[in-house]
Structure formats: structure tokens, C-alpha cells
Design a protein around this nucleic acid. Structure first.
Lengths: 178, 178
DNA sequence: ACCTGAACACCGTTCAAGT
DNA sequence: ACCTGAACACCGTTCAAGT
């Protein structure tokens, strides 16, 4: 699954090949179908684990510190890290682009990742911007998530990490990100 | 090319199939290779024309009106339209997600589209925000482009146009978009 | 319980052959 | 100038067969 996740993060869901994956892990492609009957099953499992990993990372961020700025920095940094490590993308960001090709079970898990991000950001905004009402916070959370995914997408195309850094900084200067 | 562009906008570059495209336009897949020797040639031609169309649209926006707000609305609306028409994405946005799979000639054209957007937005910001220096304008332009692409990406996954509208409105309220 | 080889209908690509 | 059929090595998937 680690190998498959890396493949999807670089080449997308459509770019993931059972045969190539099999070669990499040293078995035959037919054997993978024993563990994941269809490509959709594998994709859904990848997105589910990815969301769970993200969940525990974001939770630990809030436990390890009470500095709100550090939470936000930890958030934008995890997207930054994917770019630094082999110019990869967020698994669910790249899958969102392929949404029309995704089997329903994969779509569900990709949506779950968006929900996680919006939920976490909404809670953090509750601490940063206590004056905003719940609905405004949720809209803001979704906007931040969308903007960060967009920054990652464009910076990856540019192959230039400084594009990501500059864009995030511009979001902050404009007041979108706390 | 119109059919191919629509296919890429919904399913991505990897989702574009010569055989399927051939069936749709009523010839054999081998015949397409006569006009576009490789898939990369077709992809590059699509992105090039897409950028040219975008160029003339954005130029006409500025000619038809002197209202700066209308320029920005015209800008965000063209991305909105893709979602409304069959939940499609910006051709170069979806291709950016597949960047690692793209042949070099396609990458070049995708980069050209980004350049067009940044150039146009930078000029518009020059009119809207004359106090900003050139470098700040360019960073802001890139950030706006990234944020709008991200909004489109996420809204498409949600299959809900109101998510796009709300996100754009949040960008505006936060001060990212003029 | 886990793996495999062989088959199926797909894919981009090539090329000799047709008009 | 434009199209085609047949071939090649790829793809996800299935399934009977192996341990």
C-alpha cells in the first residue's frame, strides 16, 4: 500500500498500474487482486488510510502545542512536504482531479478527506477567530483547504517549491489564512 | 479537437483514449495518428488552442467594459462555466494534476496557460491596486490563479456549484480577490 | 491462505497497404 | 492527402490451477 500510495501521489489514480505495482513489490499482478479485488478497492483503501493518517497528524498538532500559528504552519507544511518529497501531491487532491474516473467507493473516501480538512480547519478557526459564526467558519475552512490544494497543484506544475511558499504567504498577507 | 478537449476536461489526459475519440468522430484510431502522431502532440495542440481561446476571451473582457469588478467576475465565471457545463475542469488545471505523466511538449503548453493567467491578473491588479509594486502584484496574481483552480477542483469533487460560489465569495471577503 | 499462468477486452503506437 | 487492418507491448480483470 505504501508503494501504491506513492504511485498515485505522483501519477494519479489512472496512472496506478497493477502490473507495475506488482513488479515493484515482487509478486504477480493477479496476486494483488487477491488482496484488492478491483482497482477501486485498492484506491478506496489508500484514501481511507491516507485520511486516517491525516487525522492523527492533525490531532497531534493540536496536542503538542497551544500556539495557534504553529497549528496553521503544521497544516500548510504537510502539503509542502509532499512537494519536497519527489514533487508529489496530496493523494486526495490528485484524485479529486480524476473525480469522473473514480469508482463510487473511492469517491466516498476522497470526500471523507475533504470533510476531515474542513472539520479540523473549522475547529482551529473557532479558536483563532472566535467572533465568526459557525457558517462563516466553515466557508472559510473550505476556502483555505481549496486554496492550499490549488497552491500545491500549481507549484507542482512549476516544479518550484518557492512558488508554493510565496503563494501561501500571499494567502496569509491577504488575510485568507490566519 | 473539440471532442478531445471535452474528454480531457472530464477525465484528464490519461483518461483520453485515441480509440474512444476515434469512435466518437467516426474514424479509426490509427487515422488520428495521421493528424497527431503521438498522444503528446494531441495534448499539446489542445492546450495550445485552449490557451489561445483563453487569451482572446480575457482580452475581450477588458475591451468590452472598463468596470474592474466586471473583469474579475468574468475571470471567475469562466472557471465556473466549466463546472456548470457537465462538471468539467479547466483543461490545464486537470493536466497540472497529471504533470508527472505529461510529455514535455504538453508540459510546455500547460505552463503557457499559467503564464497567461498570471500575466493577465497582474495587469488587472495594476489597474485595481496601483499602490502594489510589480513583484507583489505577480505573487498576488499567482495566488489568485492557484486559489481559483483549487476552488474548481474541490467544488467539482463535491459536485456542487454553490461550493464554488461560496469559496470565491470567501476569497473576496478575505481580500484575496479584489 | 496466498500465489500463478493464461486468457479476455482494452490501451497507444507502428506500418504496410489501400483510395 | 487521408484512411485502414493487423500487429506489438501494454492495461485491469477473471479464473482454474497450483502450493
Amino acid at each position: 500500500m505504501a508503494v501504491a500510495r506513492r504511485m498515485v501521489q505522483t501519477r494519479g489514480y489512472n496512472g496506478l498500474s497493477f502490473r507495475e505495482l506488482a513488479k515493484e513489490v515482487g509478486i504477480k499482478s493477479a496476486s494483488i487482486h487477491y488482496h484488492f479485488p478491483t482497482k477501486g478497492d485498492l484506491g478506496a483503501a489508500l484514501a481511507k488510510r491516507y485520511t486516517a493518517d491525516g487525522q492523527s497528524y492533525l490531532n497531534s498538532l493540536r496536542q503538542d502545542s497551544s500556539d495557534l500559528n504553529l497549528w496553521i504552519k503544521g497544516y500548510t507544511d504537510v502539503f509542502r512536504m509532499a512537494l519536497v518529497n519527489d514533487n508529489r501531491m496530496c493523494l486526495c487532491g490528485i484524485m479529486a482531479a480524476e473525480y469522473d474516473d473514480l469508482p463510487p467507493e473511492v469517491r466516498t473516501e476522497v470526500d471523507g478527506f475533504t470533510d476531515l480538512n474542513v472539520r479540523w480547519l473549522t475547529e482551529v478557526l473557532g479558536a483563532c477567530r472566535p467572533k465568526l459564526n459557525q457558517e462563516t467558519r466553515e466557508s472559510r475552512a473550505l476556502a483555505i483547504y481549496a486554496a492550499v490544494e490549488g497552491a500545491q497543484l500549481i507549484a507542482r506544475g512549476r516544479g518550484d517549491i518557492s512558488v508554493y511558499d510565496k503563494t501561501i504567504e500571499t494567502y496569509r498577507a491577504a488575510g485568507l489564512i490566519p
